[in-house]
Computed example of a mutant assay.
Amino acid sequence: MPIIYHVTTAAEWNAAKQVGAYESPSLKAEGFIHCSQENQVAGVLERYFAGKTNLVKLVIDTDKLTSRFVFEWSPSTEDTFPHVYGMINIDAVVDVVELN
């Protein structure tokens, strides 16, 4: 059960639960949803969510994902990150952690 993480707002997560799947703006803009490994979450929060509130961390069981995910190189951070190529089905999210 490989686990990956995605940071979003509580409001976006609540909306996803209503429709049965989570879709971040990056899916339409870039074709995938940005995710992280556990050791990468702090850097993601620092780079992209500084000063933002009402954030949650989705804990995603990749064995339950119905969309394909792959690890891809990010030249801006010189690290490999998991990307989900499609919506994240709600039942793949095994935990939701409030961040602030």
Rank of each mutant, 00 (worst) to 15 (best):
M1Y: 05
I3H: 12
Y5L: 04
Y5C: 05
Y5Q: 06
Y5K: 10
H6N: 15
T8Y: 11
A10M: 12
A10F: 12
A11H: 14
W13A: 08
N14Q: 14
A15D: 15
A16M: 02
A16R: 00
A16T: 04
K17Q: 15
Q18S: 10
Q18A: 13
G20A: 07
G20R: 09
A21S: 12
A21W: 10
Y22Q: 02
Y22S: 03
P25K: 00
P25Q: 00
K28L: 12
A29F: 11
I33E: 07
I33K: 05
I33Y: 04
C35V: 09
S36W: 08
Q37F: 14
E38A: 14
E38K: 14
Q40C: 08
V41Y: 06
V41D: 05
A42W: 00
E46A: 13
R47L: 06
Y48M: 04
T53R: 15
N54V: 04
V56W: 11
V56M: 11
V56R: 10
L58F: 11
L58W: 05
L58G: 11
T62F: 09
T62D: 12
D63C: 01
K64P: 07
L65N: 08
L65C: 08
T66H: 09
R68Q: 11
E72V: 12
E72A: 11
W73P: 13
W73M: 07
S74L: 08
S74H: 10
P75L: 00
S76F: 09
S76L: 11
D79N: 13
T80I: 10
T80V: 12
T80R: 09
F81M: 01
H83G: 01
Y85M: 00
G86R: 01
G86W: 01
M87S: 09
N89C: 04
I90L: 13
V94W: 10
V96M: 02
E98C: 02
L99E: 01
